[in-house]
């Protein structure tokens, strides 16, 4: 029996803090009235609709929502890969007009360079930033050890399993020592077992690196397990419905998702999503 990680004396709280009240303490990421519109063959698609949020330095924030609700688009805008139609994204006070190397990104697919070995994939970032080869490789070797793939340092990506590839992708994003790490359903394509291991790895990693993390997922368990705060998005057009504080003690492990308290938290989240979802749906019906 693993000892419970939840201390009974610490009550669980589910606090709605949306819209963000005071200017959040040293917000490193600020999204202000962001709308993103795509030109699709069938007309314009509003992928993100007037979203505002702030993420504090060192915070772990998850964005949860059904698929197609605009989570990736929102994250890409934070990364500078997608430009606002309206509003703006500020990173440490500066508008994001293009990708920046102090922001790391882990995509849903690993997107490793297939022509590079694990080691060279991870060394790519430091090399691109002009670090000497020896130093870049040393950084890569340290990260390879951290993700436990020392035996596979010179393997090519296609010879690795999905979980191993995703670990390499995370290491590659960390190699530039980003102050902000954006993760877009990084464990979405993994089987349940690998996923649980990766979640524990990420929790452990988070204790070690000092990065602000924005984590997109459609899995509420995963969001609660990992985050300090969970933002719940509605289905198209993407808006933020709720901003929930998760005051579970740390360190956590994936075992807590089976705890009664955690289940209660999850049920509350689901209820919120359902009622808001229903309302959004009804509004949609009235409109049409």
């Amino acid at each position: 029996m693993t000892p419970s990680l939840l201390r009974p004396d610490q009550p669980l709280r589910l606090v709605d803090t949306y819209p963000p009240s005071a200017p959040a303490r040293q917000a490193i990421i600020r999204v202000e009235d962001l709308s993103i519109v795509f030109d699709a063959p069938s007309g314009q698609v509003i992928a993100v609709d007037r979203v505002s949020l702030a993420v504090a330095q060192g915070e772990f924030v998850s964005i949860v929502g059904p698929s197609g609700c605009g989570k990736s688009t929102l994250l890409n805008a934070m990364a500078g890969l997608e430009q606002p139609f309206e509003g703006q994204v500020l990173m440490a006070g500066e508008a994001m007009l293009a990708p920046r190397s102090e922001i790391g990104m882990v995509f849903q697919q690993p997107h490793l360079f297939p022509w590079k070995s694990v080691r060279r994939n991870i060394a790519h970032g430091p090399r691109a930033l002009g670090k000497p080869k020896a130093e870049a490789l040393r950084i890569a070797d340290d990260l390879i050890e951290m993700i436990g793939l020392t035996r596979f340092a010179s393997a090519y990506p296609h010879t690795l399993s999905g979980g191993m590839q995703q670990r390499v992708a995370i290491a590659r994003a960390l190699a530039n020592q980003p102050s902000v790490l954006l993760m877009d359903e990084p464990f979405g394509a993994l089987d349940a077992q690998t996923r649980a291991v990766m979640q524990d790895n990420l929790l452990e990693l988070r204790e070690r690196i000092n990065a602000t993390i924005v984590f997109v997922t459609h899995d509420i368990d995963e969001a609660i397990l990992l985050s300090d705060r969970v933002l719940i998005m509605s289905a198209g057009p993407g808006r933020i419905l709720k901003d929930l504080q998760v005051s579970l003690p740390r360190p956590r492990s994936s075992a807590i998702v089976a705890e009664a308290a955690c289940l209660a938290l999850k049920r509350d989240c689901l209820d919120l999503i359902r009622s808001e979802g229903r309302r959004a749906f009804e509004q949609m019906e009235i409109k049409t």
């Binding site: 790391g104 790519h124 691109a128 930033l129 190699a175």
Partner: peptide
């Protein structure tokens, strides 16, 4: 060319010449 590869390279700070003659070419 897989758009994901290009975006991954952009996020890592790959300069334009390396983007063309390494990522895009390969």
């Amino acid at each position: 060319v897989d758009r994901g590869l290009i975006r991954a390279a952009q996020m890592l700070g790959t300069p334009q010449p390396q983007m063309l003659w390494e990522i895009v070419l390969l």
